[in-house]
Amino acid sequence: MEAVILEIIGKLPAGKSVSSEEVARAAEPEHWQRLTGHVRATARGLARQGRITVLRHNKPADPDTFKGVYRLRLPTDDERAAALAKAAETPDIELETPGENQ
């Protein structure tokens, strides 16, 4: 699921976002509803690492507390720095710098 999310948002123009439904449909077109929980969990992990931004009402949301309908996009430099700083304070979150594992 991580690869699907990163592939889809990586193709978007800067500042554009994608819905969780679009990600689930890309991964499994016929039975996408079963994947919505997996999309959310994966998105939370990627957002904690600073690799994506979760949006609620078109504003960045805390990946640990957001609820309801959300969208995903690539983070701005400021959002990535904030996510990495928060992750550094939490020892169980794995940090990844841009360009790693690509």
Rank of each mutant, 00 (worst) to 15 (best):
E2F: 14
E2R: 12
E2D: 15
E2K: 15
V4Y: 12
V4T: 11
L6N: 01
L6S: 03
K11D: 03
A14D: 09
A14E: 12
G15I: 09
S17E: 02
S17Y: 07
S20C: 03
E21W: 08
V23N: 03
A24T: 03
A26R: 10
A26Y: 05
A27K: 15
E28S: 15
E28Q: 14
E28W: 15
P29F: 04
E30K: 14
E30L: 14
E30G: 13
W32A: 04
Q33L: 09
R34F: 13
L35M: 07
G37E: 00
H38Y: 10
H38V: 15
H38G: 11
V39G: 04
V39M: 06
R40W: 01
R40F: 02
R44S: 14
R44W: 04
A47P: 13
A47C: 06
R48H: 13
Q49H: 12
G50P: 03
R51V: 05
R51I: 04
T53S: 05
T53E: 00
T53K: 06
R56P: 08
H57A: 10
K59V: 03
A61S: 04
P63Q: 05
D64S: 13
D64I: 02
T65Q: 12
R73A: 06
L74C: 14
L74Q: 13
P75D: 01
P75E: 01
D77W: 01
D78E: 09
R80W: 00
A82K: 07
A85Q: 12
A85V: 11
A87R: 12
T90E: 14
P91F: 11
D92Q: 12
D92Y: 12
I93N: 08
E94W: 08
E94A: 11
L95S: 06
E96A: 10
T97P: 05
G99P: 05
E100M: 03
